[in-house]
């Protein structure tokens, strides 16, 4: 069996979990394996159907009121009890903030190694093989697994969602036994960022600004641009973050986030190597910079040499026209 952990935030399934389930189902079919999904928490009724429609043949719901909020120890305990019982051969999670926190803890409990943040997965001679970026993407490494179950987390926004089907299957609800002493690291409160902005790791379009933005107030121009485009978020270079023009959550690059959106637009970013590493796997890259020698032009699909402050206003108008059509 191939088991996929499905993350739920505020009553909704994370898109990255459905991407992982979609990929899991493809792999399981190739390996003639059953695909199952597992939810952990409480009050999760009604979510199983979505897992069925993305390919799960079976859904496990691990319920305990102590797990209504995330706790790495508690969720590990719950998932461990299930894996001990059903013995999956492969265990996958999305490499979200929660997945990156939970998967290694569970792997240690299972005494298996873990491949984090994989960007390719394939079956080779009946065995799973993964590719994961090292050095924020400056290198790519392929791994095979020697320990079992095979455990990997998959990077969000990389694997395509499967076509939704009318699938159904068996739902197995289990009351899991997790004591108070196992939830000592339980989340007490989720603090929302202002404006409920989309995170760059989940955005399909990233509009990024660098030193050339000249000051924090000018990032509003980028926010307006991202407001016009669907599923867009504002990113930044390290220079802009270190100057405190924008929060570190928005930083792209080796001490920020590695991203692979459909479109990456870089405004006033020259393209330091640590920045390029974090965004070079984007599908399309656009750069606007007044320096014709900026390294970013060497990797951009479309470059505009010019003053970003003069280009952004007509760009907004043109974009609005096309989007409205």
């Amino acid at each position: 069996m191939l088991l996929v952990y499905i993350e739920v935030r505020e009553g909704k399934i994370k898109k990255a979990s459905l991407e992982t389930l979609s990929e899991g189902k493809r792999l399981a079919d190739e390996m003639n394996m059953e695909t199952a999904a597992v939810f952990v928490g409480s009050a999760l009724d009604g979510l199983a159907s979505e897992a069925f429609s993305f390919g799960a043949g079976k859904v496990y719901i691990l319920d305990n009121s102590l797990l209504s909020q995330y706790s790495p120890s508690g969720y590990t305990e719950a998932l461990f009890s299930l894996t001990e019982e059903i013995k999956p051969k492969i265990l996958l999670m999305a490499a979200t903030a929660m997945g990156r926190d939970l998967a290694p803890r569970l792997a240690a409990k299972l005494d298996v190694s873990l491949a984090s943040d994989c960007t390719q997965v394939k079956v080779n001679n009946g065995e799973l093989e993964v590719v994961r970026p090292l050095f924020a993407g400056k290198a790519l490494a392929s791994f095979r697994f020697k320990s079992s179950p095979v455990m990997a987390t998959l990077r969000p926004n990389v694997f395509p969602l499967a076509e939704k089907t009318e699938g159904t299957g068996e739902t197995i609800k289990k009351e899991v036994d997790v004591g108070d002493d196992k939830v000592k690291d339980r989340v007490a409160e989720v603090v929302r960022a202002e404006g409920n902005e989309l995170d760059i790791s989940e955005a399909e379009i990233i509009i990024s600004g660098g030193r050339g933005m000249k000051g924090p107030e000018n990032f509003d121009m980028l926010r307006e641009l991202s407001g016009i485009l669907p599923n867009a978020a504002v990113g930044a270079s390290r220079a802009a973050v270190d100057a405190e023009w924008i929060d570190h959550q928005n930083q792209v690059g080796q001490t920020g986030k590695t991203v692979s959106p459909d479109l990456y637009m870089a405004f006033g970013i020259s393209g330091a190597i640590q920045h390029l590493a974090g965004m070079t796997s984007s599908k399309f890259i656009v750069a606007v910079n007044k320096d014709p020698d900026a390294p970013i032009f060497k990797i951009a699909d479309f470059g505009v040499i010019g003053d970003l402050f003069k280009i952004i206003p007509p760009l907004q108008e043109e974009l609005k026209k096309v989007v409205e059509e």
Binding site: Y70, T96, A188, V190, V191, N196, D199, E202
Partner: peptide, 8 residues
């Protein structure tokens, strides 16, 4: 976490 923070 994505677009938010958790207090523990």
């Amino acid at each position: 976490i994505e677009g938010a923070a958790e207090k523990v």
